[in-house]
Design a binder for these strands. Structure first.
Lengths: 341, 341
DNA sequence: CGCACCTCTGTAACCGGTTTCATGTAACCG
DNA sequence: CGGTTACATGAAACCGGTTACAGAGGTGCG
């Protein structure tokens, strides 16, 4: 690899001039500049990023902290790939790279790892554990963005879906379809989306003047089996609901299965709305009506907020991004559009 | 951030000694070493990785090239998340980090980007395009591992599933279930898995002494709609098959839908086997019997091969890893195990 | 005792960039 | 014509590590 001194020699100028050609082209004479660029292209010169980072303290690298947790080996984020695509694309456009840190690094102190590697900022994806290393990071001066989990700090913000709003949309939609006895299969009460979606459900019922019946609220676990079990409990009620809002698509599909097994029909007897819009939602039959999250938006919003903090050191924490959700209507709430496969 | 010179001053030793404490502890006096470590911990010293990389030419970073392609915006890898988990875990254990490079970087020359960043190696995930930048990279002296796509070079190897073997397993399984008229919905002829799985299907038929009927081979597109359409063609045949091997799970599910729509039953009238074992396979009803790929194995094998090349500069290219596939038997080939939800 | 050898440590060059400051030259101005 | 200013460039220090080499002090042996 040619170094800056090699190039300087070949061009008959000093290294300072070479450096200027790449970082401050306007201050160098046009003729000199063109010549440098020509020779650089010929000999295939390119600056060494490590040397550059060492001198400038800027790495153009953003850390991604995503603990595929030792304690919970199977943990997966439903939209991981979409988030990464969005994040990477938005970062790329601004010239930033994404570094996935080895988790073992520094025994869990992400802050130390960030400093070591001269990271310009960090994004982390919540894995549900209250990792103290994340709090430490958020409280530092390193720009941070958290996905799916509210967290604060001097230079920290977060991106989250409008869970309550989405839940309201779902309930309203069921109401518009003529349903008046709307139950919910909630997420676990300890999770953020679980709480917020349940709140939205309650708000919507109240706004519509529908009574909230406590036995119409059953807690699930976000997974298929939990949704199935929860639905069975709902089916045993004297006052059987004519619609169910499930706080997650997998639970919704489990619920549909329970309904079908009971000899009832979806949506004729019971309409179902899910939340998330996972791939599967479009593939099951009938298609699952669901509240879609803006999957790509997570990455984009995170990148935007992060770069704002990085580029203008004066700014503290931008306001959190609350991503809008939208209703995707499919077969489980409407018999009309029978989508062929 | 404390630097090595700060630490040296505080300890009353030279920077060389400090450096030795961290890189070559056995050559420094035990007492001195302990003292340095104690002071280092107290003042929170940690080496600057950029400076270290600059001096040693070793970054402990591996690049991940995964073109979420401008030309094909929707391209996604079915197992992306699992691959990343496996890759990251295996790399972490050896102290390596994963850098996702900005695609715009250097206008597509991944090789240049790798050099700039002093990457120790590179992994790339095939996106189906024959990107010349990948070939250039493979032909360089940078250690490379390609996923899902055979490619060669002086220090390059690849990881791929045993597609043909998996197809044979599938066909044999159908045979054991008493099926004798086994059709296939193949993948596109231009894709590697498409070709290999079809080869495996043919081999298996031959080995079993079953005739191969040309009209029993229909090409799909790996997606649901393609599987559906292909199955309809098979259903129109005079000689209707009693089993179908679909070269991808989504196609298999499309096929099942077509079968059901035609008033036939799975598996009673027609048994179905898929390939991949995507999440959905376990969630549809009846569960899809399918040939599972070793998703995590991709990442692990890639990391192992890459680190072998990195650690021993003398070695050229390790042999490619062909990951074994395994059959997961569910409802679409067997009426016995009716899995509850 | 003299010499070889081993153990431990320090000095200083080096990795490849960036940036401050000084300098030379030409243009401009009254 | 002398002085100010703008422009273009170069010399050298610096970023924070690593490492070749030299040297100091102690030990063992003939």
């Amino acid at each position: 690899m040619a170094t800056i001194r090699d190039l300087a020699r070949q061009c008959g100028v000093s290294v300072a001039t070479i450096s200027r050609v790449f970082n401050n082209p306007e201050v160098v004479n046009a003729e000199t500049r063109d010549n440098v660029l020509r020779v650089a292209a010929r000999i295939g010169y390119q600056p060494n990023e490590s040397a550059r980072t060492l001198a400038t303290k800027k790495s153009y690298m953003v850390g991604l902290i995503w603990d595929t947790d030792h304690r919970r080996p199977g943990w997966r984020h439903p939209f991981f790939q979409e988030i990464i695509i969005g994040l990477k694309t938005a970062l790329s456009e601004r010239g930033y790279h994404l570094l996935m840190l080895a988790t073992s690094d520094d025994e869990g102190s992400h802050l130390r790892a960030a400093k070591r590697h001269n990271l310009d900022g960090v994004v982390f994806i919540d894995n549900g554990t209250q990792d103290p290393a994340l709090t430490q990071l958020a409280e530092s001066d390193v720009p941070c963005v958290s996905l799916d989990r509210p967290i604060t700090g001097p230079r920290t913000t977060y991106v989250i879906s409008d869970n309550a709003g989405g839940a309201r949309i779902a309930v309203n939609h069921l109401y518009e379809q003529g349903r008046r006895s709307i139950a919910t299969i909630a997420g676990p009460g300890r999770t953020r989306p679980g709480i917020e979606r349940l709140d939205g459900y309650r708000d919507a019922l109240a706004a519509l003047g529908l009574p909230e019946r406590s036995h119409h609220v059953v807690e699930g676990d976000f997974y298929l089996a939990g949704g199935h079990a929860a639905m069975r409990r709902l089916l045993e009620l004297d006052e059987r609901p004519d619609a169910v809002f499930a706080a997650g698509d997998e639970m919704a599909i489990g619920a549909i299965r329970a309904i079908t097994e009971a000899g009832l029909k979806v949506p004729e007897d019971i309409a179902v709305v899910g939340f998330d819009d996972i791939e599967l939602a479009a593939l099951v039959q009938p298609g699952l009506t669901t509240v879609a999250q803006d999957k790509g938006g997570f990455g984009t919003a995170a990148a935007t907020a992060l770069i704002a903090m990085i580029d203008t050191p004066a700014t503290g924490s931008p306001p959190p991004s609350v991503l809008p959700t939208s209703l995707v209507i499919r077969g489980t709430t409407s018999t009309l559009p029978r989508t062929s496969p």
